[in-house]
Design a protein around this nucleic acid. Structure first.
Lengths: 107, 107
DNA sequence: ATTTAGTACTTGACAATGCAAGGTAGTAAG
DNA sequence: CTTACTACCTTGCATTGTCAAGTACTAAAT
């Protein structure tokens, strides 16, 4: 897969996931990977950035399977960011798909 | 528009455009901008890279409206690159759209 | 008890892409 | 002869994702 396609979309995928239910980082890696391959070194810095930008709040929950889990929860600001990104993605991807179709028509 | 969505897709848009007909750099800027905003500082280095990777051949044509135009033409290798990218894009964008739909379902 | 495996998070050096800004140079019109 | 438009190219920068390594905690196997 072209790893460049990912840029920017990862943020959307992460916001969508956390919007479904609060999640912790390690869980997000496997959740997000269902859609686009991603590794820890990508997810954790992204979560940090989104938390700094006040899209997430975090809280710790102890686990019996290892160290405490840091859960991420969407803030109100995060929800509006999600809507904005989602709208942007839909517009963008359909205009690209439209262009592809037009080019195929002319062949 | 989220400029990050562009990453990687620009190459696809450029290949699609040149596949329709040979084009020169300056022309490509306005052609590609119909789909995604782009400027010269992005296009020229990209054209150079794609030429170095043997996806393009170039030839000069004199113009009565300014300096000579450097036209870009898709090579056989370029056409296969185009098909590859196009396939990749379609798969990628539909899996993202699918994920968005699933998330909306659960609301 | 100690090793192993799995969970969970962090950090720093790195690569790829796009942008803004600037430079060169030809043609045409005022 | 200056302005404007066409056309091309380069450089330095910011953003984002990747890779590799490291820390630390828990549970189960040896």
């Amino acid at each position: 897969m072209n790893s460049q396609f990912k840029k920017g979309v990862l943020e959307l995928i992460v916001l969508l996931s956390v919007n479904k239910r609060d999640m912790y980082g390690y869980e997000l890696v496997s959740e997000v990977t269902k859609v686009v391959d991603v590794n820890e070194g990508t997810i954790y810095p992204l979560l940090k950035r989104l938390t700094n930008e006040n899209y997430f709040e975090t809280y710790l929950v102890e686990s019996t399977e290892g160290p405490s889990r840091k859960y991420y929860k969407l803030t109100v600001l995060g929800k509006s960011r999600l809507e904005e990104l989602k709208k942007g993605w839909i517009e963008f991807s359909s205009s690209v798909s439209e262009f592809i179709k037009e080019c195929e028509k002319g062949e």
